[in-house]
Design a protein around this nucleic acid. Sequence first.
DNA 1: AACCCTACCAACCGCAAATCT
DNA 2: TAGATTTGCGGTTGGTAGGGT
Length: 190
Amino acid sequence: MRKPCCEKKKTNKGAWSKPEDEKLTQYIQKHGEGSWRSIPQAAGLHRCGKSCRLRWVNYLRPDLKRGSFGEDEEDLIIKLHALLGNRWSLIAGRLPGRTDNEVKNYWNTHLKRKLIQMGVDPNNHRIGHNFGHTKSFGSRINTNDQPSENSHSDDPLLDSTSEPESNTSCSALPDLNLDLTIGLPISFGY
DNA sequence: AACCCTACCAACCGCAAATCT
DNA sequence: TAGATTTGCGGTTGGTAGGGT
């Protein structure tokens, strides 16, 4: 049914070239974000809109921080992951200048391993040994068996009903401050 | 110097939600 | 209201840089 996103003429794939970056940046600076579907043509790019959006959001946006993550950022990511699961965009939203892709990559390459080394299951933040069995609890807000009858607030951090395992997370991580407000990042000791 | 292995990160893919007609 | 289209998200992959042998 759905047409593939890049069904039309040949579109470039793979790494972006500098001229492509420049075209996209110039176009967005002039016209703003949005209408990703039409941007490639309007900007003279042989890319699909999806690819343009990704490139802009993850790499070209001027407010991106880039560079390595600080310890406070690490703590915050771990903490937010315990609360939200793999909802990378929400987690990234709490980290100014960071993208969901960046956070996700950092989690998968650094933090996951770090937690495992500490004896903490990165999937559910429990201290234990059976890693890898439990499914990550936060893949989507609304899973198939959970018709979202109770409307969530926009911010799941303020919506305790949206977190299916928040209680168990709390019990699993007694030293986590799981207040539903995220204040200054504190270092918490696993 | 050449090869292999590992870690990292940019980008793609498929799906679901949101929006439009 | 239903179907079509667009947007956004999370999982995964592929290229490559760097270190070890």
